[in-house]
Amino acid sequence: MSTVLFTGTATCVGGRNGHSQTSDGSVSVDLGMPKNGVLDAGKTTPEHLFATGYAACFGSAVELVGHQKKLDVTGAAVTVAASLVKGDDGFSLAIKLSLKAPALSAEQTKEVLEAAHQVCPYSKATRGNIPVELASS
């Protein structure tokens, strides 16, 4: 049986060139579509928002795994690059997820990265749907 711990709700008007806001007002952003790789000042994209959420969630998964494995993940930084991709079947997302953990060896960083990818809710939601490339630095 599942128990809902929290629900975040957001509404967007105008799609990729509109405005998105959470029901509690904690996030309120103007959206834009980059032109020639440049985004208008003061605007963001759905990919930026997805990357931000995924990075935060994955960071918590890294902390959980570090605690379970008794590894020092202090100062660990998760970077997520969410790319909008156009293929033969239309548009989709592709993710590159990187972990930098200053107190860990390269082998330990890879171990934590792979274990966190198994428990992170975003990773679970994207598994089999979105290609996710894991990288440790």
Rank of each mutant, 00 (worst) to 15 (best):
T45I: 04
G59Q: 03
T109R: 06
P46A: 00
S2D: 15
Q21V: 13
V4G: 07
G66M: 12
L113K: 03
T7L: 11
Q108I: 12
H67A: 12
S2C: 11
A41D: 15
A115V: 09
A106P: 08
L99N: 12
A106V: 10
Q68G: 13
E111M: 09
V112W: 07
N17F: 01
P102W: 10
A41M: 08
E47N: 02
T52Y: 03
K100R: 15
G32V: 02
T74E: 15
G53T: 05
V38S: 11
M33E: 09
G42W: 02
V4L: 14
A61F: 13
A82N: 03
G75H: 08
S83F: 06
D30V: 06
G37W: 04
D30H: 07
A61D: 12
A82S: 14
L99A: 08
K96A: 10
F50M: 01
G8A: 13
A55M: 04
V85W: 02
M33L: 08
M33T: 14
L64Y: 09
K70G: 08
S92W: 13
F58Q: 07
P121T: 08
G42A: 03
R127H: 10
A106M: 08
L97Q: 09
T9K: 13
L104Y: 06
E111C: 02
G15V: 01
L64I: 14
G87R: 10
V132P: 01
R127S: 13
V78F: 01
L134Q: 09
A55E: 05
L93P: 07
K96D: 15
S28Y: 02
K35R: 09
P131G: 00
C12V: 11
